[in-house]
């Protein structure tokens, strides 16, 4: 699971609607990819990012990045490059995701997050 995916994800249990993100990452194994910097993509994805999620990842993996959104400039190539490598090059292989709202833990195995809900959790949704 890339950090980009993590940034887009949210817990979908009904009680977490609108507040089930950013998911907390626990990571026991990770790899670093080497993908080419893609200017267009980084620019397109920028407005969709959740900065609370970026902040957490930046702290967790010790990657310094400008977090003050008022100081960002899409002309600053250095900043975009850091952002791109944070989003696309860091991949969590094993670990888990925890919802900040309901504390549900989603395991990550072989790079695939398991987001399946159990029957009782869906039922919970229907009731509410």
């Amino acid at each position: 699971m890339k950090i980009l995916t993590h940034n887009m994800m949210a817990c979908t249990k009904k009680q977490c609607m609108g507040k089930g993100f950013p998911l907390k990452v626990e990571c026991t194994e990770q790899i670093v990819l080497e993908q080419e910097f893609n200017y267009e993509f980084t620019k397109n994805i920028y407005p969709k990012l959740d900065w609370a999620g970026i902040a957490e990842i930046s702290k967790k993996f010790n990657i310094p990045i400008q977090l003050d959104t008022t100081k960002h400039s899409l002309e600053d190539e250095e900043f975009l490059k850091t952002l791109h490598s944070l989003l696309c090059n860091l991949k969590v292989i094993t670990g888990s995701l925890t919802c900040p709202n309901c504390q549900r833990v989603y395991p990550i195995d072989k790079g695939i997050p398991n987001m399946l809900l159990r029957e009782d959790e869906i039922y919970q949704d229907i009731k509410e």
Binding site: K2, T5, M8, M9, T12, K48, L116
Partner: peptide
Amino acid sequence: GDVMLRDIGQGFPFRAGTFD
């Protein structure tokens, strides 16, 4: 791309307005 295990009948675990 990135893949994840999910039953699409349970909806998608993403924030609103993510995909083009």
